[in-house]
């Protein structure tokens, strides 16, 4: 209902518009700075967790300030319509998934991906070890319940691949409380987060990476409105340079940013925050990023995603979405 109400409100531009107006009016001016910092908004699609560490680090260590920005990081939750917020100009930068960009573009929204935090998707299906599952196919072809974002390309992909599906799919509301309570319950999550949390809380958990099923879109992707990128490329570039510095620093020493995020999201303990940063590193840095830099993307991956979305029916075959329109590495 919250998600629904928010969706409608966002669709009408009420919530964000009013909020933006009131916040702009009270935009903080840094004392003692040579020139006042430009206020910029970054909308997250989830609560402060490891996958956003680099952004909090960039703000904490002053990389954003050095680039001339005062960044307001807005945490999100289940169903925060970040892609619509970007398209409607209610936030300058937003965190989305690659599939959201493709779908938004097919519906006429001009949103462009400019920096992908994750090179590989850390999405996983968490199951109880006691079920004895050996693969994702076992999860989908067995009895029990599976909490998954219904209708999402990830869900559609696996439902198609592992048909005939026997497991009962139920709505995913975030968190792991159901998982901890019910031994026949499986759920989606990040190996960098929910898997660790569940283990921390005593569950014998086994995680199957969704990317092994062949669905591996860019995730935790910084996106902007196409207009912003075309009109103010320097602003986008400066923001991303600072973001990249933030991520380098976070990967090297996550503790300071973790402390900030822990205050904002006390549901995750210190140990899990520390573990998350370590577990997620190979998803953020790999051979490709060593050559091309953190956040870089390839046209092939985008083309593959578009083909998959068409195959799943999320995208009509007639939809003209070109991979090169969905993203750019030029802002890096």
């Amino acid at each position: 209902m919250i998600r629904f109400a928010l969706g409608i409100a966002m669709a009408l531009g009420i919530v964000g518009g009013a909020e933006a107006a009131s916040k702009d009016a009270k935009a903080p001016v840094e004392k003692g700075a040579a020139s006042p910092l430009a206020p910029v908004k970054l909308a997250l699609n989830w609560k402060p967790e490891a996958e956003f560490g680099g952004f909090y680090e960039a703000e904490r260590a002053g990389h954003y300030a050095k680039a001339g920005f005062k960044v307001e990081i807005l945490p999100g939750g289940v169903g925060t319509p970040v892609v619509q917020m970007i398209a409607a100009g209610q936030t300058d930068f937003g965190i989305v998934s690659a599939s959201e960009i493709v779908l938004a573009r097919s519906r006429g929204a001009d949103v462009v991906g400019v920096f992908s935090v994750y090179q590989d998707s850390p999405h996983a299906i968490l199951v109880h070890e006691s079920r004895g599952f050996k693969s994702l196919a076992d999860v989908f072809r067995s009895e029990g319940t599976l909490a998954i974002e219904m209708g999402s390309p990830m869900a559609l992909h696996m439902e198609k691949k592992y048909a005939p599906v026997k497991v009962k799919r139920v709505p995913y509301a975030g968190g792991i409380s159901h998982f901890l309570r019910d031994a026949t319950h499986s759920q989606q999550g990040f190996v960098t987060s929910e898997s660790l949390l569940a283990a921390q809380q005593g569950a014998k958990v086994k995680s199957f990476l969704v990317k092994d099923s062949g669905y591996n879109p860019y995730l935790v992707l910084v996106a902007v409105k196409g207009e912003l990128w075309r009109k103010e490329p320097e602003k986008v570039k400066a923001f991303l340079r600072a973001t990249r510095e933030g991520w380098k620093a976070f990967n090297a020493a996550p503790a300071p940013a973790n402390a900030i995020m822990r205050k904002l999201n006390p549901t995750i303990d210190e140990k899990t925050f520390a573990e998350s940063a370590v577990v997620q590193r190979p998803f953020v840095e790999n051979e490709f990023t060593k050559a091309k830099g953190l956040g870089a993307m390839t046209r092939e991956r985008w083309a593959e995603l578009i083909a998959q979305l068409k195959d799943l029916g999320s995208l009509k075959v007639s939809d003209q979405v070109k991979p090169e329109e969905c993203f750019t590495n030029e802002a890096l």
Binding site: F4, G151, S152, P171
Partner: peptide, 28 residues
């Protein structure tokens, strides 16, 4: 009932939930 379907699954609430994930405003 629709609120219940958001968390419990199925029905028109389930359709809204899935349509939101697919950015299908018309379907919502």
């Amino acid at each position: 009932a629709v609120v219940g379907e958001f968390v419990g699954g199925g029905g028109l609430g389930g359709v809204v939930d899935a349509a939101t994930a697919q950015q299908r405003v018309d379907k919502v």
